[in-house]
Computed example of a mutant assay.
Amino acid sequence: MYKKIRLLFSLCLLWSLAIAVQAAPLRMATTTSTQNSGLLDILLPAFQKQTGIEVHVIAVGTGKALKMGRDGDVDVVMVHAVAAEEKFVAEGFGTDRVQFMYNDFVIVGPNNDPAGIKGVKSVTEAMTKIQGSQSKFISRGDDSGTHKKEKALWKAANIQPDGSWYIEAGQGMGKVLQMASELDGYTLTDRGTWLAYKGKVDMSLLNEGDNQLSNPYGVIAVNPAKHPDTNYADAKKLIDWVSSQAGQELIRDYRLHGEPLFIPLLLK
C-alpha cells in the first residue's frame, strides 16, 4: 500500500510539473516604443487566444533586449535596430529572424519650432539646425533602437552633440516625449509612439519623410544551441504568427487618430 501511495504521489508530482512547464509564459524582451504604441495589447491577446501561449513582456531598449537574449534571460526578442539584430544572429545568439513590420522615425518639438526645422526635407539639415540654434534636444540615451538611430543621424550630420542643450534621459520613449514637452525640447521618436502620445504632450511633428528615418522591426528567437533551456518552440510559434496573414492584418488595421502606426511587411 505504501509503495502504491508513493507511486501515486510521484505521478501527481510529475503531472503537476508538466502542467507548470507547459503553462510557463513565453518571455519576450521588446522595445518601450513597441509597448508604448499599444500594438502588443492587440497582438498578444489574439496570439494567446489562438495558441494558448501567454507572453510575458519585458519592455526595455533594443540594446538591453538583445543583451537579455544573449544572457538567455528571455526566449524571444522584438526589436528595431537592423545592424544590431544581424550581429546578434551572426554571433549565434539568435535564430529565425524575421522583419515583419515597419514604421518611421520623426522629429517632434516645440510648437513654435525655434530651430526652424518644419518643412526641411533633409533630416541631416534638421539636426544641424537644432544644434546650431542650441535648442534643447532630449535623447533617449539608453542604447535603444531609437537611440542608435539618433546617434547615426548626428554622425551623418558630422555633429558630436554635447553641451547644456543636449540632455540624455536614459528613459523609454513615452517618458522622453513627456520630458521634451515639459522642457520645450526636440526629440527623435518612432511614429507609433508619437501617435500614441501626441494627445498627451504639447508638441508638434516637425520633420519626417527622409529615407534615413525608415524603422523596420524584427522578431528573433533566442538560439537554443546557446541556451538549451530557452522556450524555442513557443518563440517560433510567435514568430510564425506575427508573420501570418492573421497577425499581419492586425498590424495593418491597428490605428490611432485615424493613422496606421505600423505597416506589415509580409501581408499577402
Rank of each mutant, 00 (worst) to 15 (best):
P45A: 00
R6S: 12
K226P: 09
V77I: 05
L261M: 12
L183Q: 13
V98G: 00
G116F: 04
P228D: 04
V106H: 02
V82M: 12
L11Y: 06
I159G: 04
A157M: 11
L43E: 00
K67I: 14
I138N: 08
E168G: 13
R140L: 15
D229A: 12
Q50C: 06
A29C: 11
R6Y: 12
F262D: 00
A59V: 13
I263G: 00
F137V: 07
I239Q: 01
R191L: 14
G163L: 09
M28H: 05
R252M: 07
A90H: 10
K200R: 12
W194Q: 00
S243F: 08
K67E: 12
W241K: 10
T62F: 11
E125G: 00
I159L: 12
Y186M: 07
D71R: 09
A169Q: 03
S10N: 14
A225T: 14
V106C: 08
V219Q: 04
M203P: 02
S122F: 05
G145T: 08
H56T: 15
I138D: 07
G141N: 06
L206A: 06
N215V: 02
N36I: 01
K87A: 14
I117C: 00
L250P: 00
N215A: 11
Q48Y: 08
N103S: 14
F9W: 15
F93M: 01
